[in-house]
Simulated assay, not measured.
Amino acid sequence: MRFIKLILISIVGFAILISLLSLLFPSQAVVERSGVIDAPMTVVYGQINDLRTWSQWNPWTKMEATNSLEFSEPAYGTGAWYSWANPKKQGVTSGKLTITRSEPAKGVYYELLYNDMRPVSSGLEIKPTKNGDGTVIHWYLVTKLGWLPWWKFRGFMADRLMGPQVEQGLTELKERCERNK
């Protein structure tokens, strides 16, 4: 009986310790990368504003491209969206990306809803380079984690998990835009 009591007290103490430790972590996870594309802003904006082109440079859309992608009509500009579903994975993997704001001089901002995940607010911000020949691009993803410890610990690893994919996407977008300028 004493052993069971000790185990229960240890479990409760550990849970309290984890909860208190999670309060030290930020309540949102941010992943961001920037780069310079040697192409005019109009070319870059054309790529990031049209959701049908995303499967050629966006690493997450490329992963889902073999599944059922469904696009809004039109598939560009504010309010455009695409959704996907993959019943072959364990459970059904599905989600929806919606452009919330699109401005040629600023970039494209979107909301990503993915089953069993927190919503992600994201943006692909663009501005001209100092000499005006190229485009500076900044891609960011922000996830509000709330106060639950398991989400905050997961958010702590967000940059390590998603950062390389964002870099890959920017590299492929850069190559595509520079080819099409």
Rank of each mutant, 00 (worst) to 15 (best):
R52E: 09
L145E: 06
K88L: 14
G169D: 02
F156K: 15
C177Q: 01
M1W: 06
I137F: 00
M162S: 10
I37F: 00
W84K: 10
A158T: 12
Q168F: 04
L17D: 10
G163P: 04
I126S: 01
N115Y: 03
T100W: 04
L124K: 08
V142E: 10
G13T: 11
L69M: 10
T129P: 00
W81I: 10
L8W: 01
N180S: 12
H138W: 03
E32C: 09
L161D: 10
E125C: 04
Y45F: 14
I16W: 04
A39K: 10
K5V: 13
K88F: 13
S72N: 11
V30F: 05
Q28A: 02
G95Y: 14
D116C: 12
Q165N: 08
Y110K: 13
L148M: 07
I99Q: 12
L112S: 15
T129R: 03
K106R: 14
S121H: 05
T100H: 12
E32A: 10
N131R: 07
N49T: 15
E111I: 15
K106D: 13
W57S: 04
D38V: 10
F3L: 08
L69W: 03
T135R: 01
G169W: 06
P164V: 11
V30Y: 07
I37D: 01
F14D: 03
T78R: 06
G163N: 06
V166E: 07
R118F: 01
S94H: 08
Q28L: 04
V92H: 07
M41G: 02
I99A: 13
S102V: 09
I137K: 00
G13K: 13
T61C: 11
R52W: 02
M41R: 07
I9Q: 10
L161G: 06
Q165I: 09
A105S: 15
K5Q: 09
I11G: 06
E178Y: 01
N67F: 10
P74E: 13
L148T: 12
P87I: 11
Y82P: 04
K106A: 15
L145K: 10
D50R: 12
S34Y: 00
Y76Q: 14
L124Q: 10
L161T: 13
E125A: 13
R33K: 12
Y45T: 06
G107T: 12
Q28G: 00
F3G: 02
L141S: 05
P59D: 11
V30S: 11
R33Q: 02
D159R: 08
D116L: 15
Y110F: 14
V31Q: 08
D38Q: 14
R2F: 05
I99P: 07
G91D: 13
V166Y: 08
Y45P: 04
F14T: 14
M1H: 03
N86C: 11
T129G: 07
L23G: 02
K152G: 04
Q47E: 08
A15S: 05
Q168H: 09
E167I: 08
V108A: 08
S94W: 00
R154Q: 12
V108S: 06
P74S: 14
L51W: 03
N131M: 05
P164Q: 11
I11C: 03
A29F: 04
R33C: 00
L21R: 15
G91A: 14
L17A: 15
D50V: 09
W151Y: 12
